[in-house]
């Protein structure tokens, strides 16, 4: 039984597709949709850059989430948002656990093998450690 569906959203085309899929599933199962955006900080950080990224991130997600809220309202799906700060995969996993999500839906960027090796893949990490099913949208 799917009661809570968590969608990881960063504004990319893939994450929008993930949201649309999550919305459709939530509507079919009368589930709640929880959308999570993560502001990823650079490493190692300096204060000026952190504050700039936090400001930019909050504004960015506020605008994006307003549009998503409209879509959820039209579909009649209960909708909540969260904005976290830090490593995306860790936060997605933590939000999913804390909110007892029954499914995670997220997008996947087409990273090259080298880039994936250097930077890691958020979707792969979430798939490996999630406590619930994970649907990845390309």
């Amino acid at each position: 039984m799917l009661r809570i569906i968590l969608v990881a959203f960063d504004g990319s085309e893939q994450s929008r597709s993930a949201f649309d899929l999550g919305l459709e599933i939530a509507a079919k199962f009368n589930a709640k949709l929880l959308v999570v955006g993560i502001i990823s900080l650079p490493e190692p950080a300096i204060s000026v850059e952190i504050d700039a990224m936090l400001d930019h991130g909050k504004t960015h997600f506020a605008e994006e989430f307003a549009q998503l809220a409209e879509k959820a309202k039209e579909a009649g799906v209960p909708f909540e948002t969260e904005v976290g700060v830090g490593h995306p995969a860790e936060h997605i996993l933590r939000y999913a656990e804390d909110n007892h999500a029954d499914m995670i839906v997220m997008g996947r960027r087409g990273l090259t093998r080298v880039t994936r090796w250097i930077l890691g893949s958020v979707s792969e990490r979430v798939m490996r450690y999630a406590h619930c099913p994970v649907t990845v949208v390309k």
Binding site: L41, E43, P44, A45, I46, S47, E49, I50, L54, V85, G86, H87, E90, H91
Partner: peptide, 13 residues
């Protein structure tokens, strides 16, 4: 001590 590094970690957690 880097206040920014500490702050970034604190924010994350």
């Amino acid at each position: 001590t880097s206040v920014a590094v500490v702050y970034a970690v604190m924010l994350e957690l």
